Amino acid sequence: MKLGVFSVLLQQLPLEEALDIIASKGLDAVELGTGGYPGNHHCKPDELLADAGKLKAFKQQFESRGLSISALSCHGNPLHPQKAVARQYHEEFMKTLDLAERLEVPVVVGFSGCPGDSEEAKYPNWPVAPWPNEYGELLAWQWEQKVIPYWKETGRYAQDKGLKIALEMHGGFSVHTPATLLKLRDAAGEAIGANLDPSHMWWQGIDPLQAIQILGRAGALHYFHAKDTVIDPVNVNRYGVTDMQPYTALLDRAWNFRSVGYGHDSKTWADLISTMRLVGYDYVISIEHEDGLMSVGEGFSKAVEILKPLLIREPAAEMWWV
């Protein structure tokens, strides 16, 4: 396994300075935003795809520091009911796939997206209950008419390039649980898999250890984000896990994102890493910082300090005792 970071936490810095900081932490890999919600501060697909010289120089910045590019990330909503919005997210994602092929990066991370409630809709509609029956009917329409056709075609495009698409299971989008991920994978092909961020599992009431088992046994665990969540035992009873208060309302929210180790202890994180090795995931653990109680520098540093000694880097030993 390797330890990396999603570089958007250092997006205020030029790429060279960000890479120097990442290398100084002893990390192995960098995940780069290429569009959508994370933006493209450190990686601009249009420029790199248009100029082979720039592409070569870009790769050299990583290689000279002993770093690899673990994934390109383009989180957006390519199923947005407003066609112009959907088109932009779609084009950015497709360019990201093209760039991943050119950079020899094996994984592209994104969201499944969420359609509206009809062809005339203006906003996404995320049904979370089967009754009244309109919700169940809406969900079936979304998957049959929008979600599956889009990802079937996009998955085929990625597979032809030898790439994996790691969809982050996230509330508000059609794919948000292991079950919805596997439903889409069954319909759209094996290029589709999961970016498992345990923070999004915890707040939905899903044990990420079990999620790793479910996805890993299906060969559907493509990538991993290291981020934590803490659930407030008082506030969750008032607002529930689908708390719609802004993330800035830290004192009152039912749950908040935290840096690694500040929602769950090191033993829990060791179990997550061991379970990933158990199901065959031996790629990058990519740190993501979204902790409202810590500075970027402190949150990033603490995550590195906690994860470094837990990482399983060497191949498993031969079982000489059996």
Rank of each mutant, 00 (worst) to 15 (best):
V8I: 11
L9E: 10
L9F: 10
L10V: 01
L10Y: 15
Q11C: 12
E16L: 05
L19I: 06
L19C: 04
D20N: 11
E31W: 03
T34K: 06
P38Q: 08
G39K: 07
H41R: 15
K44I: 15
D46A: 15
L48V: 02
A50M: 08
F58G: 08
Q60R: 14
G66D: 08
P78V: 06
K83H: 09
V85T: 14
E91W: 02
F93N: 05
T96F: 03
L99F: 09
L103C: 02
V109T: 08
S112F: 03
G113V: 01
G113H: 00
C114N: 13
S118L: 08
E119L: 09
E119N: 12
K122F: 15
K122Q: 14
N125G: 10
P127W: 04
P130N: 05
W131R: 14
P132F: 04
Y135T: 06
L138A: 06
V147M: 00
V147I: 07
P149F: 00
Y150H: 08
W151L: 00
G155F: 07
Y157R: 04
A158P: 06
L163F: 05
A166Q: 01
L167N: 00
M169R: 06
S174P: 01
V175T: 05
V175G: 00
H176C: 13
P178I: 03
A179H: 07
A187H: 02
A188D: 01
E190N: 04
A194G: 12
L196R: 03
L196M: 04
D197Q: 03
M201Y: 07
W203N: 14
G205Y: 04
D207C: 09
P208K: 05
L209C: 03
Q210L: 12
R217L: 11
A218Y: 05
H225M: 08
A226D: 10
K227P: 13
I231V: 14
V234D: 14
N235M: 09
N237Q: 15
T242I: 12
T242W: 11
D243N: 08
T248Q: 11
L250C: 09
L251C: 07
D252Y: 08
W255A: 07
S259D: 07
V260C: 07
Y262H: 14
D265M: 01
S266H: 07
D271M: 12
T275Q: 13
T275I: 05
R277Q: 13
D282R: 13
D282A: 02
G292P: 11
L293N: 09
L293I: 04
G297A: 11
E298D: 14
L310D: 07
L311F: 06
A317R: 01
E318D: 06
W320Q: 10
W321G: 00
